[in-house]
Computed example of a mutant assay.
Amino acid sequence: MPTSLNDRQQRIKEQLEIHGEIRMNDMKTMFTVTEMTIRRDLEKLEQAGILRRTFGGAILLGKDIALKDRTGLRADEKASIGRTAAALIQTGEYIFIDGGTTTIEVARALKPGLGITVVTNALNVANELQEKRIPTILSGGMILEATSTVIGPFAENMIGSMAYSRVFLGTTGLTAEHGFSNSNMYEAEIKKTAIRQASEVNVLMDHTKFGAKDFISFAELGHVHRVITDKLPAAELNKACKRAGIELVLGM
């Protein structure tokens, strides 16, 4: 039987369908109710499978949010994360960068002509590097239109045939129990493959992903060396990361 929503919950659902995410501050402005009431609304919508609560708001669940709809969200924070990640890369390294609005910032921050080789399954990353005279290998496979990434067994086999000095991956959620997660099972398999082939694993994420749990877990905490973010997670998750040996780095 379909879940019955009140007018306020219906408006929250409509805002999510338009924007892909909604912030607690926006909802407090939109509705003249307490924060506790909004939290109960979000809990009901999450139980109905409509959204996933995040730190400070919620994102739409049940479909991949199109890349073009996510591009402008927290742009400054993502750029700082990308710059910090790019500063780790050394001449002569073999790098893997997967798709996303945060990982693309690594490509944007790389200096033209840098003597590295980049492997990617992301069309936007490949396009960015094309202008920079950086040798780039784009995996074959099926294009996932929503995220402009290449997925499937051809992509997995190609990515799995190489060894990487460092990989840079995005995520849509991180919890101590579920690890790093993603909404799309095919993209999750790409991430797993890259992690197996990497000497160093870096996950790039803004703070809204902390405490969020998505459909597919692609890595336990102990499989990631470094998280680059804009704000540190809450104390309990911070401790769990440190126990697992993850270095938490803030974007510069």
Rank of each mutant, 00 (worst) to 15 (best):
T71V: 10
F180N: 08
M27Y: 03
T34E: 03
F168R: 11
T34S: 15
Q10F: 00
Q130P: 01
T175E: 05
V249N: 10
R133Y: 15
T171E: 05
S165F: 03
N127H: 10
I97E: 00
R40W: 00
H19Q: 11
V249P: 06
T193D: 09
E77C: 09
M205S: 15
S139W: 02
E156P: 05
E236T: 12
D26V: 00
M27F: 03
H225S: 10
T54F: 01
I159N: 14
T103H: 00
F55A: 14
L138Q: 15
T171N: 07
K68W: 08
V224P: 05
I89G: 05
Q15M: 14
K242I: 15
D69I: 03
R226G: 03
T149E: 15
A122F: 07
C241E: 13
I38T: 01
Q90V: 00
D98Y: 04
E220W: 01
G99I: 10
A48D: 02
S181R: 07
P2A: 14
E35P: 01
G179N: 07
G62W: 04
G113V: 00
A146F: 04
E17T: 03
S161L: 04
E77L: 13
I190W: 07
K68Y: 08
G222W: 02
F215D: 13
E247Y: 03
E14W: 00
M185E: 09
A75L: 15
I81R: 03
A122G: 10
G152N: 07
V150M: 11
I97Y: 06
G115Q: 13
P233F: 00
K132M: 07
M158F: 11
G113M: 06
A198D: 06
K213M: 13
S183L: 12
V125E: 13
Q9R: 03
N6K: 04
A85F: 02
F168V: 02
F210A: 10
I216D: 06
A163I: 12
E247T: 15
L221N: 02
Q9C: 05
T37R: 01
N182H: 12
I12V: 13
I137V: 13
F96R: 06
Q90L: 06
N157A: 14
V106R: 00
M24E: 06
Q10V: 04
I195R: 02
K239M: 10
E17R: 10
T208N: 12
I143V: 13
N124F: 12
Q90N: 13
M162G: 03
D69Q: 11
F31Q: 06
F180L: 10
T149H: 06
T3C: 12
M252A: 12
E220H: 07
I143N: 13
I246P: 05
L51S: 07
G62F: 05
S139T: 12
A48P: 02
A85T: 07
S139G: 14
G99D: 09
D69A: 11
G140V: 05
E145P: 04
T103V: 05
P233L: 08
L221W: 02
V118G: 13
R39F: 01
M30Q: 12
F210S: 09
H225R: 09
Q10E: 15
F215T: 12
R8G: 01
S199L: 14
F154K: 12
T101Q: 09
E128L: 11
D206G: 06
M162E: 14
V106G: 04
E17I: 05
S161H: 05
D7K: 09
T84R: 15
K192E: 09
